[in-house]
């Protein structure tokens, strides 16, 4: 019977995932937004279902929250730039220079770190960056030192964690650039740098933006790395976590959590304009 009724078949196939997307995913987000408009009884700690914008007012007027918001966006942007700069040459080599065999090995090499636990990798960097760790050991003879724990360490660690998410879309994007375009540029008198600047980079740009969606949004929401290697610094994620856990102020935590969501919506709208969403 299903063979004869394609509408029914598609319906049955799509209902569970659509329910999941609608209820569990968007529903949770909606609940979060609603919660952020409620308030908390300071004395009992219970949530009071009174509509108010107080949480947002607090978020925008208290200096420390504004600083943390800007710091978080800044770190996410820096991590994205570092990853883009590191990923582009690697992806270019993988897509256009390496032999098919090397290409496969490199894809595996890029994917392998994703199999290891996030926590293990973050703690590995804690070890790397410690005062008697490998970085200090290499840097000390040159009169340099490990950056220690703090925001630079957060940027280094997050860049390391999210690099594969940048390499893979850029690699896929460059794979789609036909070799004949590179040959045409060279044929018309363009050297390697000219070809990269005028042909490869413009064509890979949507892929770079696609990769940056991952690096930027993952950095924006992170709160574990900063706890492990960030010293005393705080990011938005920590504020959400602390308000939710220690202070048990769910409405304020929800208000803080809407900030990265709004930032990401703006970012995705911009990405859509450069055509990056087709490159995901």
């Amino acid at each position: 019977m299903l063979d004869r009724r394609p509408g029914l078949r598609v319906g049955l196939l799509l209902t569970p995932p659509m329910l999941w997307l609608g209820v569990a995913y968007l529903g949770a987000l909606a609940a979060l937004l609603v919660t952020s408009l409620w308030t908390q009884d300071d004395f009992t700690g219970n949530i009071e279902r009174i509509w108010t914008l107080d949480n947002f007012r607090q978020l925008f007027t208290v200096d420390v929250y504004r600083t943390i918001t800007l710091r978080t966006i800044g770190i996410a942007a820096l991590v994205t730039v570092v990853d883009a700069v590191l990923a582009f040459p690697i992806a270019l080599y993988m897509a256009k220079v390496a032999s098919p065999r090397t290409q496969r090995l490199l894809v595996i090499a890029v994917l392998t770190p994703l199999w290891a636990s996030y926590l293990v990798k973050a703690y590995a960097w804690r070890g790397m960056l410690s005062a008697d760790g490998p970085i200090a050991w290499i840097a000390n003879p040159f009169g340099l030192d490990t950056p220690g724990y703090g925001l630079p360490a957060v940027i280094i660690t997050l860049s390391y964690l999210w690099l594969p998410y940048m390499i893979l879309p850029v690699y896929a994007g460059l794979e789609r650039v036909p070799d004949s375009l590179l040959e045409a540029s060279s044929d018309l008198g363009g050297g390697s740098w000219t070809t990269i600047r005028r042909v490869v980079l413009p064509m890979a740009f949507p892929a770079l933006v696609a990769g940056s969606i991952f690096t930027f949004s993952l950095s924006l929401g992170d709160y574990i790395t900063v706890q492990i290697v960030g010293g005393t610094s705080q990011l938005l994620g920590n504020v959400v976590y602390d308000n939710q856990g220690a202070a048990n102020n769910l409405p304020f935590a929800a208000a803080v959590a809407t900030v990265p969501i709004v930032v990401m919506v703006v970012y995705l709208a911009l990405a859509r304009r450069v055509g990056a969403l087709e490159d995901l």
Binding site: P178, S180, L181, E183, S185, D187, L188, G191, P202
Partner: peptide, 20 residues
């Protein structure tokens, strides 16, 4: 001599027009 330093030009089979 590399391609970019030769005084010849090519019309490619797939035309290789820069799409951007």
């Amino acid at each position: 001599r590399p391609a970019f330093a030769r005084d010849v030009n090519t019309v490619f089979q797939d035309y290789a027009i820069f799409p951007h």
